[in-house]
Design a protein around this nucleic acid. Structure first.
Length: 542
RNA sequence: GCGCCCGUAGCUCAAUAGGAUAGAGCAUCAGCCUUCUAAGCUGAGGGUUAGUGGUUCGAAUCCACUCGGGCGUACCA
């Protein structure tokens, strides 16, 4: 529908030159009385033309040449809106596109040929993934899906660090538990990893080596074993959400390939860094940030900034047109440094899109549970998945804007999981499948010959909702907003359930019934395609 | 103190680049199953969009300040 108006406006612009100065944007009015699509173009031109918007609107409409078989009414309303009303048979005809494109309906090729990298999760292997990581994991994977949907070739990437302080503490923690299990008196420091899983890892070492490794250093077999087992656990958790990263990028690679040294040299050569108090500082204040920051500590060890910048340079080198970084709000102070560093070196930092999601507050019995991997005070993502299922977890995390702090009441989620909107969508899909199974016995089949019979309110609204899908997907992807897909699908499912209640298929006159089968099939296609973006199953029966 | 994010119905959240009368779900109340799945549908109540000012034809949306909450503010990541 929009395409039709846009091309009509374009040809009108040949006569009315001022139309070239604006973008053709059409909104779907909230009220049906305001038509199917509406434009505020005349109002935007008020100042420029020094004419009343209603006069301008009249001028535009008379220049449009609209086919009455497509748009049966174009009116001016309110302060100067132009409202367009499409004929029911034109709208119904759009069902054919959906059926034809089927599993690909809603995809676009706007970004075909472009490569994107989505970096998400990126938790260091110090413990199991928590519910907090769940939001990151689900949203990251869904954004990757969305980008694929609009034409990008997408690599999902996981960046991790198995060196550094956190991991040293991990090795120390395992070694201590190992000694404890062998019967030694130990004192377990409060800033070591407290979780049970540390003991389990230590136990696997005892099972395998007994006390033979008692003199090995903590950062040898102890750390290595912990890393290996924890990573296996993380990958298992992710795969139960159907998430699979293509690339695991180890920070170590940056050292091994001398990229850190090289970067340090470049900063020095370009006089972007200096030494002070035995440390190396990056001149971030010169690059528009608040203050200079240390990139190499006086101990000789780099801070995270240096490898992070080097890491992003590898992404540029690997040829990505778009690089998405998704992390929690606890990282919100780190990325400006990295971006400033990249910019200073001449990289096009706008290709890096940093997304910050707010934290998940877990409520239990009306109280917020503070989470810390170190303190072992957390609810694992595994626990959550086994309690409510992967579909609910994925839907739940996707349905909120990442900027909003979300409360997750565990007890409520368990209790009301059957009332979750995800079931509403799935039920819609299952209902359609059920009808389609049934029609064979009724001597009915899908037909697009008489779509013009679909004129009722319920039918028209369902069709209109269906054909919004492509634009919704594009919009969601460009804005990195997974929650828009959820909102859209809930509206679509509602439109279908209403149609289902009022428009019977079996028992209606044959031509009408077969047109309705076409419509129901189109609804099924879009429901399923939308759910596949979210990573939620579309069951055939419930 | 400073920086980023947030504040919308009792609760959880929407609101399609500033548009017309702010919408859903849950919860509450009243209805609808001898016909394709009632995990559904219809209807009702529920709002000074935290507050105050500003920008303009028009503000939940943009700007300023105030209040309240989250996360940061390291030679941790």
């Amino acid at each position: 529908m929009k395409e039709y108006l846009i091309s009509a406006f374009k040809s009108a612009a040949q006569k009315l030159d001022y139309l070239n100065s604006i973008e053709f944007v059409f909104d779907i009015p909230k009220l049906e009385a305001h038509g199917d699509l509406s434009s505020n173009a005349a109002m935007l031109l008020t100042k420029k033309l020094r004419k009343s918007p209603r006069t301008t609107a009249e001028e535009i409409i008379s220049a449009l040449h609209l086919d009455p078989a497509v748009v049966y009414k174009a009116e001016i309303a309110g302060p100067g809106f132009m409202n367009f009303f499409f004929t029911p048979s034109y709208i119904a005809g759009k069902i054919k596109d959906v059926l034809q494109e089927s599993v690909n309906y809603g995809r676009s090729n706007k970004y075909a040929g472009k490569k994107a990298n989505v970096e998400f999760v990126s938790a260091n292997p110090t413990g199991p993934l928590t519910v907090g990581h769940g939001r990151n994991a689900v949203v990251g994977d869904t954004i990757a899906n969305l980008l694929e949907w609009i034409g990008y070739e997408v690599d999902r990437e996981y960046y991790f660090n198995n060196a550094g302080r956190q991991m040293r503490v991990l090795g120390d923690s395992v070694k201590l538990r190992y000694l404890e299990l062998l019967g030694h008196e130990i004192e377990f420091p409060s800033d070591y990893y407290q979780g049970e899983y540390i003991k389990e890892i230590a136990q696997t070492l005892i099972d395998e080596f007994g006390d033979k490794i008692i003199d090995d250093p903590p950062d040898g077999i102890f750390k290595e074993r912990a890393e290996k087992l924890i990573f296996q656990d993380i990958e298992k958790t992710l795969s139960s959400l159907n998430i699979k990263h293509k690339i695991f990028y180890n920070e170590n690679t940056l050292y091994e390939e001398k990229k850190i040294d090289l970067l340090l040299d470049i900063f020095k050569q370009r006089e972007l860094s200096y030494e002070k108090d035995g440390a190396v500082w990056l001149k971030l204040s010169m690059l528009g940030n608040q203050q200079d920051k240390v990139i190499v500590k006086s101990t000789g060890e780099p801070t995270y900034r240096l490898p992070d910048i080097a890491y992003h340079i590898t992404k540029f080198d690997r040829g990505y047109d778009l690089m998405v970084d998704l992390f929690g709000s606890d990282h919100n102070a780190t990325y400006p440094d990295v971006l400033a560093g990249l910019k200073a070196l001449g990289y096009d930092a706008v290709r890096v899109k940093v997304l910050i999601h707010q934290f998940v507050t877990i409520m239990e019995n009306g109280e917020a549970v503070k989470m810390s991997t170190r303190k072992a005070n957390y609810i694992t993502l595994d626990q959550l998945i086994s309690e409510v299922g992967s579909d609910v977890v994925r839907y739940f995390f996707n349905m909120r804007n990442i900027a909003s702090h979300m409360n997750f009441d565990l007890s409520l989620a368990k209790k009301h999981s059957e009332e979750n909107p995800v079931f509403y969508l799935q039920y819609g899909h299952a209902r359609i499948c059920s009808i389609l199974r049934m029609i064979e016995g009724e001597n009915l089949k899908l037909s697009v010959d008489d779509l013009h019979l679909l004129t009722s309110d319920e039918e028209q609204q369902l069709i209109k909702k269906i054909i919004q899908f492509k634009e919704e997907a594009l919009f969601s992807a460009e804005g990195f907003e997974t929650n828009r897909i959820c909102t859209y699908l809930e509206e679509l499912a509602a439109a279908f359930h209403r149609f289902y209640t009022f428009c019977r298929i079996i028992g209606s006159e044959k031509k009408l019934a077969e047109a309705r089968i076409a419509l129901a099939t189109a609804a099924k296609i879009v429901l399923k395609n939308g759910m596949s973006i979210l990573g939620v199953h579309a069951p055939e029966r419930m």
